[in-house]
Every structure is written in C-alpha cells, then in structure tokens.
Amino acid sequence: MPEADEVRRYWVRAGFFGPAAELFELHGKVPKVKVEELSDVLLSVTAVRAMEDVHGVVGRIQEGAARILTNELGLEPAATARFGMALSEACQNIVEHSGTSGWVAVHAYTFRRRLGGRRVVVIAVGDAGVGFRRSLEATQARRFGDRWGDAAALEAAVIQEVSRFRDPGRGQGLPGIKRYLLRWQGKLSIRSGTARIAIVPPWDEDVPMTESLPPFPGAQLQIVIPAKEGAPTT
C-alpha cells in the first residue's frame, strides 16, 4: 500500500486495488471512501481483455459521461457519442495491437494550475503488451531506416496515421480520436517503450516528443478533454 493516505484514497476511488489484487500481493489495509467521493469516477480501473469488454465499457459509461460532458464541460450534446467513440477506439487498440490485455479508467478532475479551475475528463488506457515499435516493425521499420525506434514508431502511428495492417480500411481509430480532440482543444499523449508523443493544445505546455525515458513495456494512452472556455469553474 502507498504510505500517503491521500494516494491510498485516490487509488481506492480509482478502483485500482481490485485489478491490482489479481496481479500483486497487497499488504496493508484498503481505506474506505464515501460514496460522494466517487462522483468524479466515470469508470474505475477496468480490465480490457477482449472485444466484448469494449462493449461493456462503452455501454456502462454513457449516462455518467453525458452528465459530465454536457453539464460540467459545456460540450455539445453529441459530444457524449463522440466521447464514446474515442473511448471505444482507444480500448480496441489494446486488443488489436498489444497482444495482451490492458486496463482503462475515466475520471473527471479540476485542473487548477493549467486551466484556472476548469474541469477536464481524462481517459487513461494502458497495457503491458508489445508496444508501438514492435507492433509496427514489420511494416514500417525499413521505411525509417536508422531512425527506427520507439519515437519513430509513435510518430508513424500518431502523426502519419499508419496502421500495421495492409487493409486500407484499418487505422482510422487514432485519426478519428485526433479529429475530436482538435474540436474540443483536447490533449492526446502516448508513451511506449522509451518515448512519449503528445498532441499539445494551446492551454498546455507539454513537448510534442520526449525520448530516452525509462523503458515502459506496452503503451499508455491518455486523452484529456477540457471544459469549454466560459464553462463554470470550481
């Protein structure tokens, strides 16, 4: 268990300990949290092992997503469906590309420093699979030559929108997510291997590419959707 009570409580709210207990031996007492503390959790940490799990995730989240996206973030009513699509495509990437299972969680937060108290919704997806470099190696490595590595693989997938499949219908998920994020001034970041790429909106000061990070097997994808300017702040 983490030593800091705040961290322990956050992990309880995130629903971390359930899935963690399947993988780790947990020592220490899991604190209890009040129901009202869970109101910002749209989806606790949920395993995605197969395509059926994606149906469950998307189906379960819609009511809560509609409440937060339209009421708190001030997005258009159709944003709930678009959000569901982005979530679905992000989860499918685990099943399609990682070669193993992964997890997804969706929370609402208040960004006090970066957005002056505006609310955001964050989708976080992670897996411990083969990562972007290995997933794209067979079709893309030769094209990049000496440049090939984790950063080049992320660039190929996110910026050049290539897919490991030769079927021309494949690889429309990430471009679709990017289109929505552009409309909402949202942020996309993906870490895989030793690199991390980000599509950075004007409100954020992140860098587009970071290299030489400690190796991370698999991939972590994060989507941040901020409240519209003028939406109520907390």
Binding site: G84, M85, E89
Partner: peptide, 10 residues
C-alpha cells in the same frame, strides 16, 4: 446507439 469508426468501416 453510438457507432465507432472501426464498426462503421466494417
């Protein structure tokens, strides 16, 4: 309900 890109493609 909603239709995602992968499903619309198929």
């Amino acid at each position: 309900g909603l239709v995602d890109f992968s499903c619309a493609d198929e």
